[in-house]
């Protein structure tokens, strides 16, 4: 017990070696690959340049204001577009990574991006489908009930929120569409009645 100076007893190295294949082969802390944390060895990584050639910047690449310059290499997936793109560019241009506003704007832009993309998809031959895209089929092929029922799983107390997070906005949007259509119909019927009268 920690109330005295003694180390609690543990299994001996011989016992451990007999039970665990390879026990202790990396015993020497100095002989581990991540030790020391920093080791100046610029030739080891395989780079044959002092500073890499620059990749072509095909559109103005957003960057952190904590960078002095655009990095020579960068990803080119998904250039910013639409309202989400405007928000993202503003977040990068205005706030450093140290500011909560930077990250909250980017998270907000992600939500806007999702809705812009859902709406855009309705004007394509492949509109978004929340049933197939959430992989719900796995509930049946992957024993959804049996994987949960009778198990001591700590995540079951919040999994019920997932369908609300995913389906809630779709149901709300559907409700808005239905109410707009109903109101338009009612207005048309009222106008027709006025004309007849």
């Amino acid at each position: 017990m920690p109330y005295t100076p003694d180390q609690p007893p543990t299994a001996s190295p011989e016992e451990l070696r007999a039970r665990i294949p390879g026990w202790g082969v990396d015993l020497d802390p100095a002989d581990r690959p991540a030790v020391p944390k920093e080791r100046f060895a610029p030739d080891e990584a395989g780079a044959h340049w002092h500073f890499p050639e620059r990749q072509e910047e095909r559109w103005p690449r957003e960057r952190s204001i904590e960078h002095a310059q655009l990095t020579p290499v960068f990803g080119t997936s998904c250039p910013p577009k639409g309202l989400s793109g405007v928000i993202r560019k503003h977040a990068y241009r205005t706030y450093s990574e140290g500011r909560a506003a930077h990250w909250l704007l980017l998270l907000g832009a992600d939500r806007v991006d999702a809705w812009e993309s859902h709406l855009r998809s309705f004007f394509t031959t492949r509109p978004d489908n929340p049933i197939t895209q959430t992989g719900l089929r796995a509930e049946f092929t992957g024993h959804g009930l049996a994987s949960r029922l009778g198990r001591n799983r700590a995540d079951l107390n919040h999994q019920w929120l997932d369908p609300i997070i995913v389906g809630g906005p779709w149901i709300a949007a559907g409700g808005v569409v239905v109410s707009v259509v109903r109101r338009a119909r009612r207005r048309r019927a009222r106008r027709a009645a006025t004309v007849e009268g």
Binding site: T134, G135, T141, G142, H143, G144
Partner: peptide, 14 residues
Amino acid sequence: IAEGYHLFSAKLDG
């Protein structure tokens, strides 16, 4: 892949 993500996320089927 959609089923794969759901399976892994919801910790189904071991």
